[in-house]
Each structure stands twice: as C-alpha cells, then as structure tokens.
Design a protein around this nucleic acid. Structure first.
Lengths: 219, 219
DNA sequence: TTCGCCGATTCTGTCTACAATCGGCCCGGA
DNA sequence: TCCGGGCCGATTGTAGACAGAATCGGCGAA
C-alpha cells in the first residue's frame, strides 16, 4: 500500500497528495464503506506524518467522503440509496443551471466538438462498449461543467460526484440502461449544439429524473 | 481581541470553538476581506495553540470562507458581486427543492406556525422594523430547510449562506427592498401553507430571481 | 449463567519544537 | 541611477511526544 501515487517519492507526500491518494482509495473501493481509518495506520502506509494524515482526513470529511465521530475516529462514509437520491435531486438543480449556461456560452469550436462527442457516444452504445460509453459520459459531464463557467456550481458538483460514484457505477451496467441513458445524453448535446438554454435545462432534468427512477427500481 | 468568546476561559478553546469564533469574526466583518490571517497572531489572540488555529483555518478554507495559498498563508476570501450572483443562482436550484419538499412534508402544527410567521413578517415590515424583519426572514429560511428533511441540500445551503451574508446584509437595508421581499416571502409561505409544492417552488424561484436583480442594480 | 464493574489498551486530540519556504532588503556592479 | 544576486527575517509546513477519552477484556457477585 506504500507510496501509491508519489510524484517524487523521495520526500514524504504533501497534504494535497495524501488527500488525493486517500480519496482515490475510497472511490476505487480500496477502503470499504464503514471501514475504520486509523490515523497511525494511514500515516505508516503512506509514509506521511500523522499531522498530514489528520489534515487530509478533515478535508475528506468536509467533502463528505468520510464521517468523523469526536474522539472515535474516522470511517468511510456509506452512501445509502436515500442519500444517493438526495444527491441526484440536488444535482438536478445544479446541472440544469450548468447546462443552460453552457448552451449560452458555447463557441463554434465547442459545437463541433460536441457533434463529434454525440457521434462517438451513440457509436459506443451501439457497439456495446459500455466502458467506453461510461468514459464518454463522464467527459460530457465534465465539458458541460467547463463550459458553464460557473465555478460555484462546478465545485459543489465535483464534491457530490465523488460521493456517488459507486451508485452511478452500479447503475451503468444494468442491461438496457445504456440505451435509455444515451438517448437522454444525446438530447442534452442537441440542446447545447442548438444553443438553446431552456431545452438544455429540460433535457438535463429529464435525464436526471430518469436516473433517479432507475436507481429506485434497482433498490 | 483576546478571548472573544470563551465559554470557560480556564482551558484553551477547542478546535470547534476556534472555528466558530473565527467564522463569526469573518461574517461579522471583524476580519476584513482580503485581510491576511497569520497563524501565530490568531493563536495569541484566541489563546489557543497554533496547531488548533491551523486546523480551524483548514476547516474554514473548505467552507470557502478563506483562501489558502501554499506557503503563503490564509486570507479572508472576498466574495465579488459575480460570485454572490453565482451563489444565488445555485441557491435557486437548492431552495426550490427544499421549498417543494417542505410543502410536501409540512404538518398541521407547522402550518399554524407558518401562519403566525406570515403575520409577524408583514407586521414587522409595516412597522418599519427592518432588523426584526431580517431576523424573521432568516427564521423562515431555516424552518423551510428543516421541513424539507433534505440533509444534502441543507448542508450545501448552510455553507453558501456563510459566504454571502455580507451581500445579503447590504441588500436588506436598501429602501423599498423590504416591501418587495416581504411580498415574495409571503407567497412562499402561502404555498407551503396550501401544501402546494409546485407553487412553493415557483414562489421561491421568483423571490431569488428578484434578489439577483436587486443585487445587480446595487452592484 | 449473566450482569455490572474496573483496569488495560488503543486511538484520537493537543501541544511544543524544528525544518523548509517565501518575500523583502541590502549591497555591489554596470 | 537602475538592475541583479544573495542574505535575512517572518511565516508556514512537518515531526514527534504527551495527555485524555473511548473501547474491550477479564473478574467478581447475584
């Protein structure tokens, strides 16, 4: 477990490195939900001081990835289904905002990029390349956030994303889910390509409501 | 500046106390925007160790109240007008969600409470009691958040609130602003009292859009 | 056998001291 | 006079040690 991702492994990792490493370990599932994170162990495992580990843990607690109980340590936060739905409900508000802003700000070059993305997306789904499709989805979300130029919303969305990756992932491999999802994503892309903020917002809302519904059914 | 708010001044304040004290000092304006916060000074001023101050500063940085530049310390974050508007745009999405949920979940007792609140609110505005009105506004926001039972949205809103109090405050004492705002708040209350989620959402959106507009004019 | 009490252990919370880094200042040279 | 390099003070980042709280185990009594 030592030195998972050190740029220059000579001197101990900085706090930012530590935070990134632990965060990665959590979202990748290397640390199981509800697993206890003991400061001394992490300190030894990552070759950092306990103070650094401690700071990183505080940061992750604020990101909602771990829970800190006073005097009783930290544990990986388990996101329940209800919480995952709450997160999606919040994302509706924020991603609709971003999509509308993106549709306003999009340049010609970016329109061209989105056309390509739309093509690749449908292609991936048609050929059954679920992994590639998932990656393209992520790229789409990311690009829309970039284009929105809305630092506040983007910051919050990034935090929420880290919390819910596991549920998102589970959903992605439901049979038949990709086809539905791809159509909704194409609709979002079309709206942005048309520079139609209202349509972009509506398409995003439709998509996220569909995700919520799917999650509910999945239970 | 020493011992601003110590419960029991015997043993030094805990990290939570410190965080609260510094946060309060920032939102109250005791620390000016862009002011540099030097760990040693705070440590002496609050009678706490530098490590505690440091932890508190990290926490506040995650709350977006201060900026931390590596190796160059912390300074109070200045929220520009553009950022304040961004925050309000985000709040639209979240508070609409909360208002709708609140309208769903509200009990008979709470309906009665909201009727009283509606009455007090209009009374305060009619009698020109701006401070009391401001306090009631805050209470209204808080109650709606409580009723929404939406921990995720509430958590984010609380964080955003701390960042934008100064702008909110500046706006509150604009002449004529209170009357407009009171009508909008009453509309929100009516919708919740009627248990009409859609209306609650619409009224909340109207109100926040109006706030944005007012801020723009003021800016 | 089961319940409650008590001590040992483990882990977190806090503090003090040390090392690394940054910015400004002074001095020398063109 | 203006520019560049190196030194020095100030401030942050890191490490290790100590103290306090919570948990877990055994032990004794009902």
């Amino acid at each position: 477990m030592t030195d998972v991702l050190d740029g220059q492994a000579l001197k101990g990792p900085t706090v930012a490195d530590l935070t990134a490493a632990i965060r990665q370990a959590i979202v990748d599932g290397d640390f199981a939900p509800n697993q206890r994170l003991i400061e001394a162990d992490l300190s030894a495992g990552f070759g950092a001081s306990r103070a650094a580990v401690r700071t990183a843990l505080f940061e992750l607690a604020n990101d909602g990835l771990i829970d800190r109980l006073p005097n009783r340590g930290s544990r990986v936060r388990a996101i329940s289904l209800d919480e995952a739905i709450e997160i999606l409900e919040v994302r509706i508000g924020l991603e609709c905002l971003c999509a509308a802003k993106a549709a306003e700000h999009v340049t010609d070059a970016e329109v061209a990029e989105f056309r390509r993305l739309r093509h690749d997306l449908l292609e991936a789904v048609a050929s059954g390349d679920l992994l590639g499709y998932s990656r393209l989805n992520q790229l789409l979300d990311e690009r829309i956030r970039d284009l929105s130029r809305h630092a506040t919303a983007v910051g919050i969305l990034e935090r929420l994303h880290a919390q819910s990756v596991r549920h998102q992932f589970r959903l992605a491999f439901q049979p038949g889910r990709a086809a539905v999802s791809a159509g909704e994503h194409a609709a979002i892309l079309d709206a942005v390509i048309d520079r139609d903020p209202a349509a972009a917002e509506a398409a995003t809302r439709t998509h996220l409501l569909s995700v919520i519904e799917a999650l509910r059914l999945l239970g």
